[in-house]
Amino acid sequence: SDYEVNVNGIHHRFHNISEELIKFIEEALRRGEDLREIIKKVRELLG
C-alpha cells in the first residue's frame, strides 16, 4: 500500500542519515574533537 511505501521510505531516509551521522561523529572523535563540539556541529548541519 501507499502507506507502507511511505513509512519504508521515511525509515530508509533516516537510516541513511544516521549512518552518515555515525561516520561523521566517529571521524571527529578520532581527530580528538570534544563530543559537545561535535554535537553542536551536528545540530547546525541538521538546521
Rank of each mutant, 00 (worst) to 15 (best):
N6G: 02
E4N: 05
R43G: 12
F24Y: 14
I39Q: 04
R31M: 08
I38S: 01
S18A: 04
G32I: 02
N16P: 01
D34Y: 12
E33L: 15
F14Q: 00
D34S: 07
G47W: 12
H11N: 11
H12Y: 13
V5E: 01
H15N: 11
N8A: 06
K23N: 10
L21T: 13
K23T: 07
I38M: 04
H15P: 11
Y3N: 01
R31G: 06
E37Y: 15
V7I: 09
L29C: 01
E37R: 11
G9I: 02
E4G: 02
G32M: 07
N6E: 12
H15R: 13
E19V: 14
E27N: 13
S18W: 02
I39V: 11
E19I: 10
I10K: 08
D34E: 08
R30K: 09
F24M: 09
I10D: 10
V5T: 02
L21C: 06
G9T: 02
E26Q: 14
G47Q: 13
G9M: 02
D2A: 04
L35R: 02
R31T: 08
E4Q: 05
I17F: 02
E37M: 12
H15T: 12
I25R: 00
I17G: 01
R36G: 10
R43C: 03
R30S: 10
G9L: 02
E4S: 04
L45M: 10
R13H: 15
K40W: 15
S1C: 06
N16Q: 05
L21S: 07
V5A: 03
E44L: 13
E37W: 15
L35S: 04
K23C: 03
E26C: 07
F14N: 00
L29W: 07
L29R: 06
I17P: 03
I39C: 03
Y3G: 00
G32P: 04
Y3Q: 01
N6Q: 08
H11R: 14
V5F: 05
K41M: 14
L29T: 04
H15D: 11
S18G: 07
E37S: 13
K40Y: 15
E26P: 00
L35Y: 02
F14Y: 02
D2K: 01
E20Q: 09
E44G: 08
K40R: 14
K40G: 08
R43D: 15
E20V: 08
E44Y: 15
R43Q: 08
R31C: 03
S1V: 15
D2Q: 03
L29G: 03
G32R: 04
E37V: 13
L29S: 03
N8H: 07
E44F: 15
I38D: 00
K40Q: 10
E19W: 15
I17D: 00
E44M: 13
E20A: 12
E19L: 13
K41H: 10
R43W: 11
A28N: 11
R31N: 11
D2W: 08
L46I: 13
E33F: 15
V7C: 05
L46K: 12
R36K: 10
K41R: 13
Y3E: 00
R13T: 14
H11L: 15
H15E: 15
R36M: 12
N8D: 09
L21E: 06
N6S: 09
I39T: 04
F24N: 05
I38L: 10
I25A: 02
A28K: 09
E19Y: 14
R30G: 09
R30F: 14
E33Q: 11
G47T: 11
E27T: 14
H15V: 09
I22L: 04
H11M: 13
I39F: 09
V5I: 12
H15F: 10
I38T: 05
I10M: 14
E44N: 09
R13C: 05
I17N: 00
N16E: 03
I10W: 06
E33S: 11
K23A: 11
E37T: 11
I10Y: 05
S1F: 14
K23L: 11
G32Y: 06
K23M: 11
I10T: 12
V42F: 06
H11E: 08
L21K: 04
V7L: 06
R31Y: 08
F24C: 04
E19Q: 13
G9V: 01
K41Y: 15
N6I: 15
L46V: 14
R30C: 04
G9C: 02
N6T: 11
F24R: 05
I38W: 05
E20Y: 14
N8T: 02
Y3F: 10
G9K: 01
I39P: 00
N8W: 00
I10F: 11
G32D: 10
K41F: 15
V7H: 08
S1M: 14
K41S: 11
V5H: 01
E4T: 07
F24G: 04
H12N: 02
R31K: 10
V7Y: 05
H12T: 04
H15L: 09
R31H: 11
R31F: 09
R43N: 11
L21M: 12
R36Q: 14
N6H: 08
V7T: 04
N8V: 01
L46N: 10
R31E: 06
